[in-house]
Write a protein that binds this DNA or RNA. Sequence first.
DNA 1: TGCACCAACGGGCCCAACTG
DNA 2: CAGTTGGGCCCGTTGGTGCA
Length: 340
Amino acid sequence: MAKSTNINNRRYLGNKYKLLPFIKKVVDSECTDIEIVVDIFSGTGAVASAFQDKQLITNDILYSNYISNFAWFSPRKYSRKKIETIIDEYNAMVINEENYMTINFSNTYFSHDDCSKIGYIREDIETKYANKEINERERALLITSLLYAMDKIAKTCGHYDAYRQGVEFDMHLELLLPEASITNNKKNKCYNIDSNDLAGKIVADLVYIDPPYNSRQYCDAYHLLENVARWEKPEVFGVAKKMDRTALKSKYCTKSAAEAFDDLIKQLKCRYIVLSYNNMAKKGNDRSNARISDDDIFRILCAKGKVKVFSEEYKAFTTGKSDIEDNQERLFLCICNEEE
DNA sequence: TGCACCAACGGGCCCAACTG
DNA sequence: CAGTTGGGCCCGTTGGTGCA
């Protein structure tokens, strides 16, 4: 019988899992009458999951994240038993076929055999969906299970910008059953569009904003999971075997980040905005410094309402090569002005 | 100036083994 | 047997180099 997994068993840059108590504390003590919560750069959906008692709207530009968000938060019914049976079948299978995954990714992030199995399973999920054996939520749950299983064994440093050379493939693909709620709010909605395109189209009580902080594009870091989630089998190139990601680039990773942020905030229709942003302004390598200055954050948020800042020490991740001190994760709360 | 490519290893945590 | 040590698993984000 399949073991289970939950939303936090993903390796993900900027993962807010450890900050959830801090975020909850700020929201609970500062915001009143919250019914609709928007996680507009939802990523894996960790922050949204902390507000599961509310009506949730999630959004992410990556389809792989959208699929996982849909698996966790969609109100659509699914059969846990059916998913578990399928996962058990997948885990018991020995696959040795050549497919899109073996042709492009053998012995890079995964061994040939694991590639073969990943390719087979992903194709089979689509077949089952086309044959109406599984519904949309069940498809999302199975893809999420596959993505989480891949992430667990990938020969990487946590993301797919590069794979590690000369390391044994000692783990094998094992799909786990996602522990998704069956009692999600009936009005929950998951989007897969640019946040700036969504901002003006929704009305909420609280909008949580957790954009990329630096020049590292999430579509670069997670191209392989995105590729498998989409399953459009694009051509891949370079050592890291990346696909074309032009449409998935975020403005928040470029020097026009502040401009994009300003446009986003102006469009929002909500009572409260909570923004997560670190204080890496000028501390590290240019690649890693924050893209939006504190001055810009204050200027933009103050034009929208009353701003308060809450900060908490957050141990900076280090590989021993850098020496970044006084790293803080900060929450900017904006109590929005009433609109006339 | 931006990004493609490459991947390093500190530290938290769990648990078994050891010690007094 | 309670307390301590340390092995090993797991998580995670940034630095360096080179080229367009």
